[in-house]
Amino acid sequence: MAARAVRLDPSARRHVDAAIGRWMELLGSEILNDARQFVPVDTGRLKDSLDAEVHDKVLRVGSRDVNYCLYVEYGTAPHVITPRNKKALYWPGARHPVARVNHPGTRAQPFLRPALFQRRSA
């Protein structure tokens, strides 16, 4: 049996791309809503910075401008904190200025990955 040639309307790709874009916008909105539910809230700055965008069939969900977003998601290892602009560190409640602080690290508080891995229907 001979194979038949299939002809597609030249505008089909544009329609398919538009449908994929609409689906990704919807998916991004769902992931964003879940991330906003799961994010730990202290001041609310991280939660308010969460956003979703679709560009060229790539969906991105994350923080627009909060630089500690990944530290909350993945946690941090123990590390040393030293002053950048002064000779010592001081904060309200400290007994005296110190030259360095041994920070024990922070535990991970995942919210983006759990939002991404929620079971969804297409």
Rank of each mutant, 00 (worst) to 15 (best):
D9A: 08
D51W: 11
N102G: 07
V61N: 01
V58M: 13
L32C: 04
M1E: 03
L46Q: 05
R120H: 07
L32M: 02
R107P: 09
Q118N: 01
A35M: 03
P97F: 08
G75E: 09
W23N: 10
A88L: 11
I81G: 01
P97H: 01
R14N: 13
R100G: 04
L112P: 02
Y90E: 02
M1S: 02
A99L: 05
G93F: 09
P10V: 07
V101S: 03
L26E: 14
V39S: 00
P78E: 08
D48S: 14
E25H: 06
K86I: 05
V41F: 03
V54P: 10
Q109P: 01
R113D: 08
H103R: 04
K87R: 12
Y68M: 08
D42Q: 07
G75F: 13
E30N: 00
V98Y: 10
T82N: 03
D17Y: 04
W23V: 02
L59G: 09
D65S: 14
V101D: 07
I31E: 04
F117L: 12
A5W: 06
Y74N: 08
H55T: 11
R7F: 12
N85K: 15
H96Q: 08
V66K: 00
F111W: 00
H15I: 08
I20S: 01
G28T: 11
V98N: 00
G62I: 09
R13F: 12
R36K: 15
R45Y: 04
S29R: 14
F38H: 14
K87V: 07
A12C: 03
R100D: 04
L46K: 06
G28E: 11
K87L: 07
D9M: 05
L27F: 14
L112Y: 02
H103P: 02
T76K: 03
R119Y: 11
E73H: 03
V66H: 00
F117Q: 09
R45N: 10
R7Y: 13
